[in-house]
Amino acid sequence: MKILAFDTSASACSVAVRDCGVLRVSLGRDLARGHAQVLAPMIEAALGEAGFGAADLDLIAVTVGPGSFTGLRIGLATARGLALACGAPIFGASTLAVIARQAVIARQALAHSVGEGCEILCVIDSKRADVYVQRFDADANPLDDAQAVTPSKLAASLVSSSGAAGKYLLVGDAVNQVAEALTAVGLECMLVPAGNVAEAGTLAALAETGFSAGVAGLPAEPLYLRAPDVTLPAGMSP
């Protein structure tokens, strides 16, 4: 099974190719802007290195969000354009789920145990007051839906749902803001050295496992978690 996976949802751009259950190519670079410039050449390079063309693909995996609105559209427009022209289906995955998976992998790789059995709290910077959050169990299975919430509200809701004795394994590029809010209310936070943005290699593996098991990915639509910032003129109702 040949899978092309890519992510442009945050301050990085990564592309991976998996073939017959093995990660063949993994390209990545950190960048705050310019995803629209680098993604297509990276995909071409990855396919070239893997030694096959887009027409040979069985699956296109892409992160659908939450994340940078522009970044999500860059990734999804590319995935949808590829799917349109080569016929391969798209497997959409949540950025939060990919990052939570990265936390599990990172924890398993550690010699000593960190956050064993502990709930994973995946948090992504929205560049605004709130953060994108989702809770996962210790094996990265989602426990609730992704949401946009301020770190202090998140802390309060965690205290009310699981009590002040809760322990969380934090991962994502908003760990600093969230750790501060959680410790302020007495919750315990642990960190693992996992990639803080969704990586195409993890995404490709996730898509392969899901697709092979007959699990449908998320639809190829952005998960914005926020309506466009616009107000109706006075006197108008939506």
């Binding site: 427009a77 590319t78 995935a79 022209a85």
Partner: peptide, 11 residues
């Protein structure tokens, strides 16, 4: 632009 680039890669 991204859609067109993707079509270009695929075709």
């Amino acid at each position: 632009v991204m859609t067109a680039k993707a079509v270009a890669i695929a075709t």
